[in-house]
Amino acid sequence: MHSGLVAPKGIWWKPAGRQEKVWITVAFIWCMVLFAMMPFWHFKGGQNPAGIRHRVEPAKYQERVNRFVQEYKVGEDTGMPVVQAPPGSELYLLGRMWAWYPILKLKEGATYTLHLSSLDLNHGFSLFPVNINFQIVPGYDYALKITPNIAGDFRIVCNEFCGIGHHLMVGKVIVDPK
């Protein structure tokens, strides 16, 4: 036998020992389990990042958000509109330097389609304290079906660097109890 520094002479394509065979078989099976879990969760699990995805012009998206705010605005909080759309509706959230617009008001247990996009740079949608995270890319509309399973006062933190005010970018989501 030799170390990894030695150039092997002759034929080194030799059968594996028993321990190697067992380990490689077990490792291969484990890899197949890892692989199968992802499609499995698409059928059986409740959390998937598939969504409905489109390209969108940032200006057009901004327009859509404005219409959404106009239609369902129910109040204001520190100068930011609070918007409450009926269960089942499409919600439009805009990320821009350095705010999430508008504030969303939801109902516990209701399902919505949440659209996410950016006006300028990449942003990171991070729902606090639930810890749900999505990448927001300018020019793309990412629509996800969401069902809040708990009432409360939530925050949206930006977790993708978007310039010097990045750490000030905080939005708000309120979920009313059933």
Partner: peptide, 10 residues
């Protein structure tokens, strides 16, 4: 794929 939802950019 799915676990990234609770880990991405954290």
């Amino acid at each position: 794929e799915q676990i990234s939802i609770i880990a991405h950019n954290t």
